[in-house]
Simulated scan of single mutants.
Amino acid sequence: MTLSFKDLNNPIPDLTWSQQKALSQGEVLVETRSHSSWGGAVTAQMYLPIARSSAWQQLIDYPRWVEYFPDLTKSEVLHQGQVKHLYQVAQKSFVFLTAQVEIYLNVFEVEGKHIQFRLEKGTFNDFTADLKLKDFDNGTLLTYSVQATPNIPIPTIFIQQGMQMELPRNMRQMRQVLCAA
């Protein structure tokens, strides 16, 4: 999964040479930021040593997302069409507390390049996610951005810390599943 120095001379805009090198060595790059007074936002990027078309076909198999994200217990397509409707349930255990969230999403796809997830309804005040794919070396650069505000007041710092710790683990799991197919 390592890129050659030659490949890193063919840069991806908006990424430094050191970021591209880190990605090529399997690191997941994560950037968190504030989003509303009780929410958080995060962007994660990773390199997939598979063709973009292969990654795309697997990523639009939404019921399979339970394999990518361990806390996701259900991912079901309710309606197929130009706009897909997706229902997802996740469960997260904390020390003495288990929280369950459910979300109904409108899903917009730009074939082979971009998936947008927009909140229809659920246990969030707001939720958006964007997944983008770009060719990178002999594989694919996957960029996943999420911003969300839960409907229970949790300080932003805790939301951001949770996202920063959980998303890289989830992304590594996603890469493992995608590349094993």
Rank of each mutant, 00 (worst) to 15 (best):
V146W: 00
Q88K: 04
E76Y: 07
T143W: 02
R169Y: 05
K132F: 07
K21T: 10
S4M: 03
S24W: 06
S34W: 01
I12F: 04
F117N: 01
L86P: 09
Q58I: 06
F124P: 10
T32C: 10
M163F: 15
R64S: 12
S54L: 12
V83D: 13
N9Q: 15
Q58Y: 03
R64K: 15
E111H: 07
P13Y: 02
L23P: 04
Y68N: 09
V30W: 01
A41Y: 02
Y144Q: 13
V110S: 08
Q100S: 14
A90W: 01
T2P: 00
T140Q: 00
T123R: 06
L23G: 02
L8D: 08
W38D: 14
P168L: 02
A51F: 01
S53K: 13
Q161T: 13
G162W: 00
N170R: 09
E67N: 12
G112A: 08
I159D: 06
W65V: 12
I60H: 01
V146Q: 06
D135Y: 00
W56M: 12
L29R: 05
G122Y: 11
Q88S: 08
V77A: 11
T43F: 01
N10G: 00
C179E: 15
Q147A: 14
W56E: 02
S18Q: 14
S34L: 06
G112I: 11
P150E: 12
L48R: 00
T143M: 06
L72F: 13
Q58C: 05
K134T: 03
N125D: 15
V30S: 14
I50Q: 04
D14W: 10
Y87N: 10
S53T: 11
M1E: 11
H85N: 12
E166P: 00
L133V: 11
D61F: 07
Q20V: 04
E166Q: 14
G81N: 12
A148K: 04
A51V: 02
N138D: 14
S93H: 06
N170Q: 14
F108R: 11
F5D: 15
L15G: 07
L23V: 05
L131N: 08
R169N: 11
H114N: 07
D130R: 07
A90Q: 14
T32S: 11
V77C: 11
V66L: 06
A44M: 01
L15M: 08
A180L: 07
T123M: 12
E120L: 14
Q45N: 13
G26P: 03
Y68L: 13
Y62D: 01
I60Y: 04
F96M: 14
G112N: 10
N9E: 15
Q160P: 06
P13M: 09
Q91G: 11
I60D: 02
T123A: 03
T149I: 10
T156C: 03
G39L: 07
E31S: 11
A90H: 03
G81P: 08
Q19P: 10
T32W: 05
Q161Y: 07
S4F: 02
P70E: 00
T98S: 15
L15A: 05
L178K: 03
A90R: 07
D135S: 13
F127C: 09
W38M: 10
P168M: 01
E120V: 10
V110F: 02
F5Q: 15
Q173L: 04
Q80I: 03
L8A: 04
W17Q: 09
K21A: 10
Q116H: 06
W38V: 12
